[in-house]
Design a protein around this nucleic acid. Structure first.
Lengths: 218, 218
DNA sequence: TATGATTTTTAGATATATCTAAAAATATTT
DNA sequence: AAATATTTTTAGATATATCTAAAAATCATA
């Protein structure tokens, strides 16, 4: 049984480990969780004593097999709750994150089983991310970031990597949403900014930073 | 902002204060929460410093006006979640309590507003207890315990006071559920036990202890 | 009403999760 | 490779929520 805090560390470390190949560093974890490196070291020791992480002093951590399983269950809960909030309670996608961060720690196998059933076994959450099943299995949509595709590419927005409120509000404002059809009209070479067309209608300019966070399926 | 532990103490103390007229004693709280008197004293001090309780050493506590308001909001959340679990997720009424104990501490005004809306503004939870509104207002069904009515009385079961799993399972087993129609067939004077008929069909015997926990609306 | 029983509080510990400041190890640069 | 910079860990504090054991206050009753 993991505590609230342990689950949060595990989930964050798991996400970080997906993004890089080697070990996850203490500082990266601290930054992700808005905490201090010393606190991270303490928690890392705890989780590695529980067999959730493998850890070598000064060398960062890897998530163990049992850790991955546990992390995927927390992610499963998070994404099922986000789906519930958007599909059933009519939340906007920029309103779900904080609430799901709390709900993901509710401990009841029956609750999650019934919630999954109630939602008709969704495979992707409102941000387009896959929902792992009870065994931690999931399939991803093949995705690519907007900054990695060339002009004239057409695709559907399937995922948004930055889920901060500020970013999601910005996307709402310029008319970008999950499932929208986008076409790259022009790619400005020197700064990587893009002119894109949404749903064959509206045309907007986005910076390279923004384009890195919008992923499409071609 | 109250912590998880503070909310649990407040809710318990509020419920105890409803049952008696005077101050709520340290020991009663400790027993209710399965904790020690020393721990209760510590928490009582904290809550009275926050203006949630009024407290005189060795004299027990009273819940302040702001405490009542806060307690009713926790109770509102608990009962809305129980309603959700039974109505939407098909939980049995003996399965909801532990999960609702966790869910009641989720902090999001929007979530509760939308959940209330989603459930079509229920006025009573699956155990027949009233659900306070955003202002803490509620109306009770006029209720009486089965041991206080005389033979031949007919009523609808509106509330069950003991919500332990063991008790609810027992009720399920003998065919008693919320909303069932009951008729008192016979009242045994010397031990207070009852013979009752459920839904004009099944006849069962219940002890006085059990009858004290089953409340009907005539 | 005094004395013993019970309840409540205090004092001091423990466990979790955090922090700051200093020390140790590793990485980078000249 | 030595000096410097950065990262990570350790040592020691703090805050919350709990506990046990002993002291203090209140209650019950002979």
């Amino acid at each position: 049984m993991l505590s609230f805090a342990e689950e949060n560390y595990l989930k964050t470390i798991y996400h970080l480990s997906e993004e890089i190949d080697g070990a996850v560093s203490t500082n990266a974890i601290a930054e992700s969780l808005n905490t201090k490196a010393a606190s991270v070291t303490d928690m890392i020791k705890k989780l590695s004593n529980k067999g959730i992480l493998s850890y070598q002093k000064y060398r960062g951590v890897h998530v163990s097999e049992s850790g991955k399983k546990a992390a995927l269950q927390v992610i499963r809960k998070h994404r099922l709750w986000e789906t519930f909030l958007v599909d059933k309670l009519k939340f906007n996608w920029d309103e779900v994150h904080e609430v799901a961060e709390q709900l993901e720690h509710i401990n009841s196998a029956l609750l999650i089983k019934r919630l999954d059933e109630f939602l008709a076994y969704p495979k992707f959450d409102p941000h387009g991310d896959p929902i792992p099943d009870e065994n931690g299995e999931y399939k991803s949509k093949p995705q690519v970031a907007l900054n990695h595709v060339k002009a004239d590419t057409i695709g559907i927005i399937v995922s948004v990597k930055d889920t901060s409120n500020a970013f999601l509000k910005y996307l709402d404002k310029i008319g970008i949403y999950l499932g929208a059809k986008v076409k790259i009209l022009e790619k400005v070479e020197f700064d990587g900014s893009l002119e894109i067309q949404i749903d064959s209608k509206k045309t907007v300019f986005i910076s390279k930073e923004v384009s890195e966070n919008i992923w499409i399926s071609e």
